[in-house]
Amino acid sequence: MEFTIEHLAKNFEKKQVLRDINFTFEEGKIYGLLGRNGAGKTTLFNCINSDITKDAGECYLIKNGQKQQVTPEHVGYVLSAPTVPEFLTAREFLKFFIDINSDTMSLIKPLDAYFDEMRIEPEDRDRLMKDYSHGMKNKMQMLVNMIAEPDILLLDEPLTSLDVVVAEEMKQLLRAKKDRRITIFSTHIMDLALDLCDVIVLLSHGELEVVDKENLGEEQFKEKIITALKDGAYDVTPEAFDRRK
């Protein structure tokens, strides 16, 4: 399976954030999407997931030799700020999610098996999620997106605000679950990308570029990334638009 982006472009008012992006992602790899704050990483994810309208280009999958346009049903999207129904317990949420997605899941396990896999303790499984910490909410968001078995899993800086133990658990899980899907992990933290990801992709000046690590030591590789990212940030926040008006 391959996921291809062709000639993708996105502008906000007169600011070109993504410009003629062409890239192919391969199944079974974790791609580190590295870019400075404001470079357009979330904008790219929102275009892939059809949360915002592309100005140009297309996104498609090649599965079993057949071309398919990417729809939200193909995509799991883990946001940097977790969004879960806080009026439900974790068990209620997980049961509801499985009930509405059971037709597309290849294997349905007992609920506690999923909680065990995500290392959510038994005493936390029947608590209201409004009482969960940020990290616990993030675990639940990650869990439901992974068990839905999406072809493409988008992770928008999901580990940045987690404590060391939880972040390491999430990294181990992502490594264990990377087969049979395409995982794109967005971050602005270079060491995190180098530790977790199989391929490093830079988003700079609105374009994607693979950084080839071959024949480079770790410090040389980091320096190459820093050089490539210099002066490549795009500030696309609402505050930035207000300042430009």
Rank of each mutant, 00 (worst) to 15 (best):
A228S: 13
K130Q: 15
F221N: 11
E209F: 02
H7K: 02
C59S: 12
H205K: 05
D235N: 12
E207S: 09
N49E: 11
F241Q: 02
L111G: 07
M142F: 02
D20L: 14
H188W: 06
Q141V: 07
S102Q: 15
V164F: 02
L208E: 08
G76R: 00
A167V: 03
V166H: 03
V165G: 00
K67C: 06
L202I: 14
V199Q: 14
L18A: 09
K67P: 06
N145K: 06
K139I: 00
L202E: 06
A193I: 10
F3D: 12
L154M: 08
S50K: 15
S161W: 04
H188S: 10
K177C: 02
L154G: 02
L61G: 07
D212I: 08
R244S: 12
P238C: 12
R181F: 03
H74M: 07
K245S: 08
E121F: 12
L153W: 02
L216Q: 15
T24R: 14
A148D: 00
F87R: 13
D163Q: 05
I189H: 11
A228P: 04
T83E: 15
R36Q: 10
L174A: 01
K178N: 02
D126G: 08
R181I: 03
V211S: 07
T24A: 06
G206A: 09
Q220R: 15
L192Q: 13
F115A: 02
A56Y: 05
N37I: 08
E26V: 10
L61P: 11
K245I: 11
E121H: 00
S106A: 14
P122C: 06
I100L: 01
R119I: 07
F185P: 00
K213E: 11
E58N: 07
S80A: 09
M136F: 08
E73K: 13
M118S: 01
V75W: 10
N138T: 09
H188L: 10
A233N: 11
L143H: 01
L33S: 05
D99G: 00
V199L: 11
H205T: 08
A90L: 04
G217Q: 15
P238Q: 01
S102P: 11
Y114C: 03
S106Y: 03
D163I: 07
L194Y: 14
S106V: 04
Y114P: 02
V201Q: 08
L208F: 00
K29W: 06
E209W: 03
L34M: 04
K95Q: 04
D151P: 10
Q141M: 13
I100K: 05
